[in-house]
């Protein structure tokens, strides 16, 4: 079980409100990702759920029981830290065994669980090593192993992949997703990387300055961002957000159009000059200086010929325009 409910949770450090007041409900078995720029309060929110920080006010419920003042050890949650936080003086086996030992579990049963976890995570051959002798990816797996043996109500991940190199990150991302499919346990995952959020989450919670900007499935957020912040944060490259005449034409303060929703055409409403072109092989990203509008990012197919200095015409796909009002909220 792992249903977590936050009601009116507020956190301030002295005078500073890090999290002004927030309600959130996480269903059992869900993979929830907290995403936002650094300093948005996502890690603090995770630490509040973990019990590593006190809430200033409000209540946290885990599986229907009030956990607001419970110490972390009593909440039945497991956490994987950004730095892995392995115990450097213990072997891999002892690291994974540690939570079970703390719980006073029968040694035979504990051994069995550790062996099981090691098999799932491909760590069987490394059980006698110290964390210092492992690669980054292996350490990450040990940290996950330490979390899963306890069979917690929910897993908390605090930017677990940010210390890994790009290739490994993609692998671990998939492993964690697969793990979730196998275990079907609630997972709460904090990241600043919207790609991780999009690829892993059942439900994304976009945070900004301690506030929830939007909650929804990855595709909901992509298709219908609730405001300019979410619009700019989800999707890569970023959505073009235009003000001025272009927006006024459609009756909005800000007009949003994703790079992949602008077509390069023979003749179109927007004409401009290519500033920068990035040919990635599969895609091409162009920065186009459009008269009267500004710089637009445009995504084209991999083998378009345009280069720096070429003049081109662009046409936005009419049904993919996002309109935002003066308060930044999406207009219906």
């Amino acid at each position: 079980m792992g249903k977590i409910t936050l009601s009116n949770v507020r956190k301030s450090f002295g005078e500073v409100d890090v999290i002004p007041s927030l309600d959130l409900s996480i269903e059992n078995g869900e993979f929830v990702v907290f995403v936002g720029p650094s300093g948005c309060g996502k890690s603090t929110l995770l630490r509040l759920i973990a019990g590593l920080e006190d809430t200033t006010s409000g209540a946290i419920e885990i599986d229907g029981k009030d956990a607001t003042t419970l110490p972390p050890a009593k909440r039945g949650l497991a956490m994987v830290f950004q730095s892995y936080a392995l115990y450097p003086h213990m072997s891999v086996k002892k690291n994974i065994l540690f939570p079970l030992k703390m719980a006073g579990m029968d040694p035979a049963e504990a051994e069995k669980r550790v062996a099981n976890a090691a098999k799932v995570l491909n760590l069987t051959n490394y059980l006698d090593r110290r964390p210092g002798q492992l690669s980054g990816g292996q350490r990450q797996r040990v940290a996950i192993g330490r979390a899963i043996v306890r069979e917690p109500a929910a897993f908390l991940f605090d930017e677990p992949l940010s210390n890994l190199d790009a290739a490994l990150r993609v692998n671990m991302r998939q492993e964690i997703s697969e793990l979730h499919q196998t275990l079907k346990t609630t997972m709460i995952y904090v990241t600043h990387d919207q790609v991780e959020a999009m690829t892993m989450a059942d439900k994304i919670v976009v945070l900004n300055a301690g506030r929830i900007e939007q909650v929804g499935s990855p595709l909901e957020l992509y298709r219908a961002p609730a405001n300019t912040f979410v619009a700019g944060f989800i999707g890569s490259p970023k959505m073009n957000l235009l003000g001025g005449a272009a927006a006024e034409q459609v009756g909005a303060t800000t007009l949003g159009i994703r790079p992949e929703h602008i077509d390069i055409v023979e003749d179109g409403p927007w004409r401009g000059v290519v500033g920068l072109s990035e040919h990635l092989g599969s895609d091409t990203f162009l920065k186009v200086n459009v008269e009267g509008i500004g710089t637009l990012t445009v995504r084209g197919s991999g083998e378009i010929p345009q280069r720096h200095g070429d003049s081109i015409a662009l046409r936005p796909q009419a049904d993919k325009l996002h309109r935002f009002g003066p308060d930044g909220k999406a207009l219906k």
């Binding site: 110490p71 830290f81 950004q82 115990y87 703390m102």
Partner: peptide
Amino acid sequence: PGEILEASRMDGASLRSEILYVLTPM
């Protein structure tokens, strides 16, 4: 790193265990 001590707290260690089994050996 404080995270390691926090990890032990998440792992269910009491304060005594945290100091005895994690901090002191490190």
